[in-house]
Design a protein around this nucleic acid. Sequence first.
DNA 1: TCTTAAATATGATTTAAATCATGTTTTTGG
DNA 2: CCAAAAACATGATTTAAATCATATTTAAGA
Lengths: 144, 144
Amino acid sequence: MLSNSAKYALKAVLYLSLNSNEEEKLMTKDISDKIKVPKSYLAKLLQDLSRHGIISSTKGPKGGFYLTNNDKKLSLIEIIEVIDGRQRLNSCVLDLEACNDKNPCVLHDIVGRANSEFVKSLQKTTIEDLIADIKKGKSVFPFE
Amino acid sequence: MLSNSAKYALKAVLYLSLNSNEEEKLMTKDISDKIKVPKSYLAKLLQDLSRHGIISSTKGPKGGFYLTNNDKKLSLIEIIEVIDGRQRLNSCVLDLEACNDKNPCVLHDIVGRANSEFVKSLQKTTIEDLIADIKKGKSVFPFE
DNA sequence: TCTTAAATATGATTTAAATCATGTTTTTGG
DNA sequence: CCAAAAACATGATTTAAATCATATTTAAGA
Ligand code: FES
Ligand code: FES
């Protein structure tokens, strides 16, 4: 479903969304310590996200990663696609090449359906939405 | 979600369910050719399934793998759990250890829900059910 | 301007999943 | 009883994902 990397990326962005802004930036180490992800592995992911405009960063002393208000409007799928690519989430559960919505494979009904719902949710949910849920006490994010 | 191995196993069992019975057994090669899975890799999977009583087999000339009517009553989750174990399908999407239904993580609502549906479907769907769908023309199974 | 702290870029290593290979046991048929 | 055909068992190799390491660039602040 999601690669390990994508999970790490989601966690990191979530952590950033709750603990950073234009004035208060976070270093890789701050984040990796909290979410318990290997530092240099996370560094790569953050750089990847930054390069693709998902998160913001500045170099040098007092630099770090952060989310602008605009960044927070991005949907979760955009984070995932930078890391995992587009194919991974949209392929048939059995990896049958001849299968799609028009020609549904034998698992499509019971499984593909759940998967489509999943993808749709990722598309329409933004970082902001998640923050709102947490602030409302609707859900939690225990970092690790 | 599902490992490659689990997908292969599902395909193989599905193929067996459509093309074998107590009288007509299939060799590893017959199956691997059709579903395009490396022969000796599939051999391991089939032996694993056989050892766990998911499929049936007999050794020696004229031997091979097959499904009994009883085998066809097993649910899909049983196949998957033999190959992937129990944990893989039931863990939090972000692999957060402190998360569960009582303490839902920030993605649980939008993602975990789809996942639970998925698992429930796998539990209640049997091989037989899938065969029925195919025979009814409701779905297809193009093998590869 | 110089030192230092940060991201950035790139490549090497490790690990686990996937794949390959080969020998052993069982059963059938002659 | 023997030879061949099949599953069974086990271990080696390959590959891709995950992890580690190190050198380069940029910006801040003294
Ligand atoms: S066509 Fe296979 S899961 Fe949709
Ligand atoms: S608690 Fe994280 S997905 Fe359910």
